[in-house]
Design a protein around this nucleic acid. Structure first.
Length: 392
DNA sequence: AATCCACAGGAAGATTAGGATA
DNA sequence: TATCCTAATCTTCCTGTGGATT
């Protein structure tokens, strides 16, 4: 059930598989396949389909004795031109000592070397660039797309995957036309399709009778609401299974799905809070402290931007970071709101002005604990809100 | 009906970090 | 290594406003 698992068949992606295959199949006849651009939201099977087709191509190539190379690169990890070229080139080099070092060479030399390698290898090379939109600068794409002009003995075809439909708009028109020879769009799965995918995995991953009938439909329905993300559906199911196992339950039930959904959400929040910039963490801490104060006093009074800003200023002074303006803080607060850590509605208190009503979305103590992991907050661990602000 | 609080949130310009380029 | 560029961040200054109070 892990996202890395590659099933034998991909339900409801026949059209996409056929489409991509028919674009790439000229490789088996020693012709150059067109470059392809594939769009689709996360979890619509872009990576799975391309890898699937790639593998089929490889085995068919072996059968028919045609030389086909298939290289998969995730541009989120390999995100500069140099490293991209280096990565592709090293694909052809088995001898470790011959490998191109990760730094040191001029970029164009790597490029020349790469061309040599491809030329020597011959045949057709299909390069998959996953998350191309993460690639920095379009020079790399430009160079790669023109590489065929310098090759006699070999051909290169590029498949770009992206979840950003507007990506090509910012691209150099020359790159755009040469890479976008073929375009494919992967639609999101609907609930029924997700269900089939889950059923397929359930068969291989779980023991028979270990799951109640309504669990799979529930998982797919929940994931379908989130723009039909298959990865999410699988995560949900896997987490449910894990929770059920840990709880020594005999079967996975709807209850476990609810728990799993909750846990996934909390894990997300923890991750978001942990990676927040210091200023935002300070603001969050200020909100938490005020909330705590409110609970102690028993007032259910709303937390306002002004109050948060006062505490924030005080906290910043204590740890000697520069203090941002209230205008900026207001923006950061709405950012926290968008991340779902807090809710900040605009309310009017009549004569007493207009402000945001700030509330925390999750367990106060939990978030506080995450914040305290940050070294910066060590010295604030026993901070007390100074004085009672405004008695009336 | 008029007032006025305590901010919201837009516009424009300044500052900064980083990466690219000479 | 210096400096140039760019995008992100932050400040300054600003106008706008819902509704309790006068």
């Amino acid at each position: 059930m892990r996202p890395t698992y590659m099933p034998e068949t991909l339900p409801h992606r026949d059209r996409e598989i056929d489409g991509l295959a028919s674009v790439l199949v000229p490789a088996l006849r020693d012709e150059t396949p067109s470059n392809v651009f594939i769009y689709g939201k996360t979890g619509t099977g872009k990576t799975a389909v391309t890898k699937y087709v790639g593998n089929k191509l490889l085995s068919k190539g072996k059968e028919t004795g045609k030389k086909v190379n298939f290289i998969y690169i995730n541009c989120e990890i390999v995100d500069t031109q140099y490293r991209l070229l280096q990565n592709i080139a090293n694909h052809f080099i088995d001898d470790w000592s011959e490998r191109i070092p990760f730094t040191g060479w001029p970029t164009d030399e790597v490029f020349t070397k790469l061309k040599q390698m491809i030329e020597k290898e011959g045949g057709v090379t299909v390069i998959i660039l996953d998350e191309v939109d993460k690639l920095k600068g379009d020079e790399a794409l430009y160079n790669l797309s023109r590489i065929n002009a310098d090759l006699n003995n070999a051909r290169v075809s590029i498949v770009g995957l992206s979840n950003d439909l507007k990506f090509t708009e910012f691209l150099d028109p020359r790159v755009k036309s040469s890479l976008g020879e073929e375009n494919m769009i992967f639609p999101p799965y609907d609930a029924k399709e997700l269900e089939d995918i889950l059923i397929q995995r359930v068969k291989t991953a779980l023991k028979p009778n270990s799951i109640e009938g309504d669990v799979v439909p529930l998982c797919s329905a929940l994931a379908a609401q989130e723009h039909g993300d298959a990865r999410r559906a699988l995560d949900l199911l896997r987490m449910s299974a894990e929770l059920a196992e840990r709880g020594k339950a005999l079967k996975i039930t709807k209850k476990h799905v609810r728990l799993a959904q909750n846990k996934i959400e909390i894990d997300r929040i923890i991750e978001v809070v942990r990676t927040l910039p210091t200023q935002s963490k300070l603001i969050l801490l200020a909100i938490l402290l005020q909330e705590k104060q409110n609970q102690k006093v028993g007032s259910n009074g709303t937390i306002t931007t002004g109050e948060v800003y006062e505490i924030y200023k005080d906290l910043s002074k204590k740890i000697r970071t520069d203090i941002l303006t209230q205008r900026r803080i207001a923006d950061l607060i709405s950012e926290l709101d968008m991340l779902g850590i807090i809710t900040a509605r605009v309310i009017s208190k009549g004569r007493y002005g207009r402000t945001r009503d700030i509330k925390i979305s999750y367990s106060l103590e939990d978030i506080l604990n995450i914040l305290h992991e940050d070294d910066v907050f060590k010295e604030l661990s026993n901070y007390k809100i100074r004085g009672q602000t405004r008695l009336i």
